[in-house]
C-alpha cells in the first residue's frame, strides 16, 4: 500500500526531470574520433594524387563485393613527380551494399582507404549510393581535414626513428651528469 504511494512519487519526480531525448535530425551529437563510417579514399596532398594504386586487394577481400577498381600507368611517375608507377583510374563503392566491416582498410598496403565519419547517406533510389572516384576522394579530403589523418607508414617510420634519438639524448645527459 505504501509502495503504491512511493510509485506515484517516483513517476512524479521523473516528470520534473528533463527528457534525455536528442531531436536527431535537428540536433546532432558530435561524432567520436574513432567512429567508423563508410570507407573513403585518401588524397596525397604532397604529390596531388590519390594514395590508391588500383591494386584491387580491397576489391578481392570485400565480403559484399561492393567495390570495383581499375588501374592505369601513372602519368606523374613518367614526369618524375611521383614514386607510384601505377595509379587508380576509376574506383566505385556501392555504399548501399557496404557493411562497414573495415576489411578493405585492414588489407590496404598503401593506406589509401580509410573508414571515414560519413554516415548520413540516405537516398530514395536503391542504387543512389553508388559512389565514384571523385566523390570518394572529396569525402576523403573532408575526413582528412576533419581528423588530421596521416598515413600509417609515416607514423610508423617516425615511431621507429624516435626511440633511437631519445636513447641517444638520455645517454648524453647521463654522461654530462657524471662529469
Amino acid at each position: 500500500m505504501l509502495g503504491n504511494l512511493k510509485g506515484l512519487l517516483v513517476t512524479l519526480s521523473t516528470f520534473f526531470r528533463h527528457p534525455v531525448t536528442y531531436q536527431y535530425p535537428d540536433e546532432h551529437k558530435p561524432i567520436e574520433d574513432r567512429y567508423m563510417g563508410f570507407p573513403v579514399l585518401m588524397w596525397d596532398a604532397k604529390v596531388e594524387e590519390p594514395y590508391c594504386t588500383g591494386c584491387m586487394v580491397c576489391v578481392r577481400y570485400c565480403p559484399t563485393q561492393c567495390m570495383t577498381a581499375v588501374m592505369k600507368d601513372n602519368p606523374l611517375h613518367a614526369d618524375g613527380k611521383s614514386t607510384r608507377r601505377k595509379i587508380v583510374d576509376s574506383f566505385e563503392i556501392n555504399l548501399g551494399r557496404c557493411i562497414l566491416c573495415g576489411i578493405c582498410v585492414d588489407v590496404c598496403n598503401f593506406d589509401a582507404i580509410e573508414m571515414s565519419h560519413e554516415h548520413e547517406l540516405s537516398k530514395y533510389a536503391r542504387n543512389g549510393n553508388r559512389t565514384n572516384l571523385p566523390k570518394l576522394l572529396e569525402m576523403g579530403k573532408a575526413y582528412q581535414q576533419e581528423s588530421g589523418w596521416r598515413p600509417e607508414k609515416e607514423i610508423k617510420a617516425e615511431a621507429e626513428a624516435k626511440p633511437v634519438d631519445e636513447a641517444a639524448e638520455t645517454k648524453e645527459e647521463t654522461v654530462e651528469a657524471e662529469s
Partner: peptide, 13 residues
C-alpha cells in the same frame, strides 16, 4: 505529453 514526460520522453513534438 504528460505520460511522455513521466517516462523521460518528450511526447509529440
Amino acid at each position: 505529453k504528460f505520460l511522455g514526460r513521466m517516462q523521460m520522453r518528450m511526447g509529440p513534438t
